[in-house]
Design a protein around this nucleic acid. Structure first.
Length: 237
DNA sequence: TCATTAACTGTCG
DNA sequence: CGACAGTTAATGA
């Protein structure tokens, strides 16, 4: 296990709000306070209901953010990759996380304590502004997601989930840049793994996607988009 | 190798 | 469309 702290100055995550502001001199002492956590695939590093332990950034890897329903069903709220923030709703008023987060791949995470974050945001307006922009985007995504869940059929929701994965992780050698279990896709789309399996195999029969074991890919994104085009929500969510 | 997990199929309410 | 039961394939201890 490698516990070495990742250094922001050599980090490649241009979308990270810390990295974007790393040139600000006030930031350096807070960066010195951060810690790096290495998570193995499948490891849960934010437990729903546990006390907030600050803010996490994905340095490298992939993470799912989840919320558990009353029946114990897991809902994947979003996926996060390099440069993205996790646990950002945990601070402010809330004392406890109301989401969970587990690594989908071996991942390294940067963690800033609550105190660190609060002082940073009070002291550096540019950082606060960037975070606010991020919140605004998140809220907008969340709103369109509500519409989706209300209006889309299961087939459309699964296609939408596939497009989300495609957008976020891209495709390499005809398959998506991340391998998710059918269960994870189901938890994201708000359905069951059996439904996902069935829809994936019919999509495969129709030639819209190809699968090989856990690997899924598409050769015709536009055809997939067309299926849910009436909903017009495929822009970004 | 055996045991556990994931993928898939069929059926029923 | 979801829930359940059951089979097969893949994975890993």
């Amino acid at each position: 296990m490698n516990y070495e702290k990742t250094i922001c100055s050599v980090c490649r995550n241009a979308s990270c709000i810390i990295k974007r502001n790393v040139h600000l001199s006030q930031l350096s002492r807070y960066i010195d306070q951060k810690s790096t956590i290495n998570c193995k695939k499948g490891q849960t590093f934010i437990i729903e209901g546990a006390p907030v332990q600050g803010l996490y950034f994905v340095n490298k890897g992939a993470v799912k953010v989840t919320k558990t329903g009353l029946n114990g069903k897991e809902q994947i709220v979003r996926l996060a990759k390099d440069g993205e923030i996790i646990g950002h709703r945990g601070f402010g008023a809330g004392q406890f996380y109301h989401i969970g987060a587990t690594a989908l791949e071996n991942s390294s995470l940067c963690n800033f304590s609550l105190d660190s974050m609060n002082q940073m945001l009070l002291e550096i307006p540019k950082l606060t502004y960037d975070l606010m922009t991020f919140y605004a985007e998140e809220l907008s995504r969340s709103e369109t997601k509500v519409k989706k869940f209300a209006q889309m059929t299961v087939r459309e929701k699964v296609i939408d989930a596939l497009l989300y994965i495609f957008r976020k992780f891209g495709q390499k050698d005809d398959f998506f840049g991340i391998q998710l279990s059918r269960k994870d896709i189901a938890d994201f789309a708000g359905t069951t793994d059996e439904q996902v399996i069935r829809i994936l195999s019919s999509l495969k029969k129709e030639g819209l996607i190809q699968t090989s074991g856990k690997k899924i890919g598409t050769k015709n994104v536009n055809l997939l988009r067309k299926e849910i085009s009436e909903h017009n929500y495929f822009i970004d969510s």
